[in-house]
């Protein structure tokens, strides 16, 4: 462990950039788990699916991943709506969505992961974007575009979703569903349809996060499991239902992880999220910006 100021400054900078990407991963968990009370532990698996879709689209069709992300997100939105409808039909309607619902998502996570293994094998895949190869240097701080662009895209997505939730009728209905399901009916919004749309958004965000993931690092099918702890830690630390809280918590986790990997070695960084999750649950279960 050798300490120096430029190491620290670089760790914080790349931590913030990583945090922007983590925000993109966690925003769907905040919507599904925090607002809709659906414990979608398969979210990171869908993210990895998104990463492999981006890999396919650039290597076989030559489509830029940022562009294909939009197309995939649209498909994922529709898929997410039907997925929620099925989940509602089988679990929420019956009222036993705790044990069976959790096992259901665990099974889905497993099916996605093993399918990817069967199709792509267990090798690490990476995409190479020439226009992101540059690294800006501001003083002693290095800003690689390969990290900065996904960060900006992730934060932009979170801000866009936040605007949608706070400014449109359906968006406000989603926020209302998180607070009081019955009251939503009184103001003339269909709670099931509202939750469908919200889950569709969450699913779309998972796919977009996956595209960002394969720009940042190489991806193999089971890498999603490392992100379950991260995404839920961010969601809980951020206060469950708050998107600004999610962004703040994502930044905190990003910085904590890069600090750990700079000063203790990168192999320890997956443990940081778990520590953060346990500390939050033990000392501040309401989170930073929770109600």
């Amino acid at each position: 462990m050798n300490f120096s100021w430029d190491l620290l400054l670089n760790a914080v900078t790349s931590g913030i950039m990583l945090g922007g990407f983590y925000a993109a991963v966690a925003v769907g968990i905040t919507i599904a788990f925090g607002m809709l009370d659906i414990v979608n532990i398969a979210h990171p698996a869908f993210m990895v699916l998104g990463a492999f879709l981006a890999f396919l689209s650039i290597n076989t069709l030559g489509i830029d991943p940022f562009l294909s992300a939009l197309g995939f997100a649209a498909i994922a939105f529709v898929f997410g709506r039907y997925f929620y409808r099925a989940y509602y039909h089988f679990f929420e309607r019956r009222g036993d969505d705790s044990l069976q619902g959790l096992a259901f998502f665990f099974g889905i996570m497993f099916i996605v992961e093993i399918s990817l293994v069967l199709i792509f094998g267990v090798d690490y895949r990476l995409i190479d974007l020439p226009y992101l190869a540059t690294t800006y240097e501001i003083g002693i701080v290095q800003i690689p575009l390969r990290l900065a662009a996904p960060c900006l895209a992730g934060v932009a997505m979170l801000v866009a979703i936040q605007f949608y939730l706070s400014r449109t009728f359906t968006g406000r209905a989603i926020l209302a569903v998180a607070q009081d399901l019955e009251a939503v009916r009184f103001v003339g919004a269909d709670p099931i349809r509202t939750k469908e749309i919200a889950f569709g958004i969450a699913m779309a965000s998972a796919i977009v996060a996956g595209v960002l993931l394969i720009i940042i690092q190489s991806v193999e099918p089971s890498i999603g499991r490392e992100f379950i702890g991260r995404a839920f830690a961010i969601c809980v630390l951020g206060g469950m239902t708050s998107l600004p809280g999610t962004l703040l918590a994502a930044m905190i986790l990003g910085i904590a992880e890069t600090m750990t990997s700079t000063f203790f070695g990168p192999s320890w960084s997956p443990a940081v999220a778990f520590g953060l999750l346990l500390l939050t649950l033990a000392f501040k279960p309401s989170g930073l910006l929770g109600r």
């Binding site: 788990f33 414990v39 532990i41 705790s98 959790l102 499991r225 490392e226 379950i228 702890g229 839920f232 830690a233 809980v236 192999s267 320890w268 997956p270 443990a271 999220a273 778990f274 999750l277 346990l278 649950l281 279960p285």
Partner: peptide, 17 residues
């Protein structure tokens, strides 16, 4: 209860680390 479930998921990753 879900927090316990999520913690056990993350626990497996940490133990492996």
């Amino acid at each position: 209860g879900v927090f316990f479930s999520i913690a056990t998921l993350a626990l497996a990753v940490v133990l492996q680390t």
